[in-house]
Structure formats: structure tokens, C-alpha cells
Design a protein around this nucleic acid. Sequence first.
RNA 1: GCCCCCAUCGUCUAGUGGCCCAGGACGAAGCCCUCUCAAGGCUUAAACCGGGAUUCGAAUUCCCGUGGGGGCACCA
Length: 493
Amino acid sequence: MSVKPARTRLAPSPTGHMHLGTARVALYDYLLAKKTGGQFILRIEDTDVSRTVPGAEQEIIDGLRWLGLPYDEGPDIGGAYGPYRQTDRREIYRAHIHTLVNGGHAYPCFCTPERLESVRQEQQKRKENPHYDGACRTLDPDQAARRIANGEKYIVRFKMPREGTTIAHDHLRGEIKTENSQLNDYVLLKTDGLPTYHLAAIVDDHEMGITHVLRGSEWLGTFPLHVNIIRAFGWEEPTWIHLSVFLKPSGKGKMSKREAAVAIKDGYSIFIKDMQDLGFTPEGVLNWSALMGWGVAEDDVMTVPQMLERFTIDSLTPSPAAINFQKLDHFNATHIRLFTTQDLAARLKPYFIREGLNVKDDVLLQMIPLIRERLVTLDDCISFGAFFFKDEVAPIPEDLIAKGLDAKQSAQVAQRAYQILAAQPTISHEACEPPLRAYIEESGLNANQVFGILRVAATGQKVSPPLFESMEIIGREKCLQRIKNAIEILEKR
RNA sequence: GCCCCCAUCGUCUAGUGGCCCAGGACGAAGCCCUCUCAAGGCUUAAACCGGGAUUCGAAUUCCCGUGGGGGCACCA
């Protein structure tokens, strides 16, 4: 079966931080394009100049790079269908708006914002739906042209059909019927000379040869408008796929600014730029977000190449999905366990360095097998393995006292363990465990007590990777020194 | 208020008229393993929103409710 190559596009507006929703659309865009041998395009929708945030475009570019979703055409790399930033495409929009006006599908409107506001209020008073009353719809074209020539301010509106029904087709929902009487004469061109989203996106999608439009379901409301604009131009429609929105974890309402702040407090985020800092991996984030809105029967742990094998637009789901951060943890941890030691070493190193630790590469490579399956996020490597890179550890005195023993008794145990370890030729696991087990046997203590004291002494913490393997990496001299320190601490109490 | 969309375990979902007393995953509970914490193995609890209709037969089709979500800007 041969499929037509799809051209998809991610079309974010640079108005804030890149979030999860954008990442998910990008993933699906990427999967569809690559699966069919087509292209994935990045286009910046910056027609609202007042809302454009400096740096936001770069954040999107960085975010896609981090996620590992390279685009084939975009503002920073160019392409055959550029420019890829809408503010650089004004003339293209002007020409198309001209076509629409000439064809009787759009008209100039001279109404002031004040008049519009009062019309709206009147309508609300009469309990009518707020909509443009069409005052300029029937203006004589010659007269309108004269007013424009006189320098009068104007906008251009789309002349929406007043009667009948618009039937739009969404790939996931089928036919969506809307009475044209419900539709408005939407603004196509603003007073600042830039088009609105409605016109710009439609024109660009056509000009750029987009075959599949994946976007959020918040666009369903103006979907009939978009379809009507395309029909007015006489263009072919792309396949429309409206993805559902993400709901907050409670499932009540969509993710909001407030909710995003709550997530941050809990060590999570919906902003891509935060993900890396928090220790999440692109693999984890992608796998997690892929599954919110994509129905996969089984084996849901996937890398992008594996997703590529399975992805189809038919398996996308239309219902809203509540965000579940526990599941992010799960996918992140699962993918970390799948990384090779070399790979994980390279990913962990920056976190150790961020902590001000002096990372020795050979030690790093050795300790990774010990901590790998304990990591949920990459930065967990600090709590599990920072002691490997420290000259000294500082155990909390109370932690050195074993359950059922007092400080003095614990010191004696540590003393005895020290002698046993010091008597061994090496600090290897094989050399050290048997004699310590024998000591446990004859002393009537239990393994938790003895190993617990040693653990805290050697690593400085109550929870650590396996004791003997850890000591081996720490090294004989350092271990003995740390145990000696622990004995001193205990005796001082 | 009006318009549009959605509806299977707590959550993400499989399911396209008989394979379903509904499968997987996260989470939860229990057991095993065990030097801590994990990981791993085994097991358990947990859902077709309600009502009609079509049909020999409905989670699956249709209608009506109900619930949830989105939209109603010279914002995207």
C-alpha cells in the first residue's frame, strides 16, 4: 500500500512558554509526516504583534530540538515555501484578501470599535447572540474604495453565507454541521495591516501545501469559518484533525496558569523548558504525551522509532484527557532503565556538575548500574549517588544508631565491622560480605542493623544503592576512613 | 444565554453488532524476592453515565436526557 506523503505543520504563536499541548501536536505532526515520507514544517504565527513575547520563538525551536523532533522547513532553516514567519508574509495575505474582496467574498468595514461595542451591548440587552450586524456588508464597492483612498481606517471582513448549513469534516469526528445563521462576518484583516489567524493560517496552509492540519479542539468553533474561506478561494481542503485539549489532573477544566503553578510546586511542569531541569527525558515526555489522545492497545512503552511503526491518524482519540503526572514518572523511569550506561552517563553528568560535584568519568560509569533502576527523574542521581563524588560524607548521628541498639552498641558494631573489613585484602563484594555475614550470625544481630550502620557510615545516607557494590566503588581507603569517622561520631554522643 | 464537541475501571485507553460475565497501562492493595530504597515476579479490587429505539443479539447503531469540555474578539 502506498500512501501519499503528508505535509504537516506546527503553527504556534510565540506568545508564551512552549507547553505540553504544543509538544504533543508536534509529535503527531512529525510522526505523520515521517511515516508517509512527507515533511514536517514549523511556522510561526505572530500576527498579533502586541502579544508576541521576545524569546518565545527560540524557546519553541529549542524545545523541538530537545524533544528530538526535527522539522524540514522553518524560520531558522528556511525552505522552499518560506518565509515561515507570518509577519514576513504580509504581501501574500494582502493579495489573497484582495482576491476575496474582488470575488465578493469579503468586504471592507469602517465601523469603529466603539460602534461595535455598543452594537454588542444592544444585542446582549435583547438577549441575542453577539455578532457583527453587517452594517458595512452592503456598502457600495466604489464608495468603499473611495473612503479607503481618502485614508479612512478600515478592516476587511469575511462575507459569511447567511443561509443554509456549513458541513465541515473532521477526521476524528465526522461531519460537523453548523447553521450559517450562527456564523459571523469574522475579521480577516486588522487595522494594523496584518491578517487574523483565520485568514493567515488558511492561506499559509494552502500556499505551503499542507495536507493534514492537526490542531487543538479550541479551533472547532471557527472551523466552519475556515472551511468557508477555503471554499471561497476554491481551494482543496486538507484533512482536518482536531485534537482534544488537556484537562488538569482533577479532570475538571483545562490546564490553566494557576494549575501550572501547582504542578511546578510538586516537581512537575507542563512547560517544555522546565522538563529538562526537572530531570525528565525527551523519551519519557514524548511517550507520556503521545498516549494522551492516542489509543494503543498494549505495549505502550515506545520510543519515537517504535511510535513511527504504529502511528496512524485513525487511532487518535477525540475526547479530552486529564493530565496524569504519575504516569510521566513511570514513563520517564522506564526509559531511563532502557538507556545504555554510556548514554545515561552523558545525561547524568550535567546534573552532578550542576550540584558542584567533581565528576570522575570512570566512577560515573561504575555507579550507573547501581542507581539506574532507582531513578525516576535524572536529577534523582544526586540523592542516590552524590556521595560517590565526595571526599567526605557527613552522616546524621541519629542515622548511625541501628534499630534496637544505642549509640555505644552501634559504635561497637562499627568497630568490629571495621576490623573485619580492614582484615580483608580488598574491599570487593566477594571478599567482604561472607565475613560480615558470619559476624552477624555469631553476634545475634540482624543484617539490617549491621549493614544499616555501614551504609550510613560509608554513604552518609540511610537510603543508598546496594552496600557492598557501593563500597567497592568508593574504594577501600575511603571506606575505612568513613567508618572510622562514624565510630568517632558515635563515641562523641 | 447561544453554538459546537466529548462520554468504557480513579486516570490514559483497547474495543467498529456475537470473539467481552469487557483487554492493557498508570495508580492502589496483598504476597514473593531482599542489606536500605528501587527494580522484578505473582495475585486482587476497580468501568461500558441514564432512559428509550433498532436487532435473534448492542460497550459497539439511532434518539432523548444528564454530565463534562471548548467557543461566542481588529487573540491565537
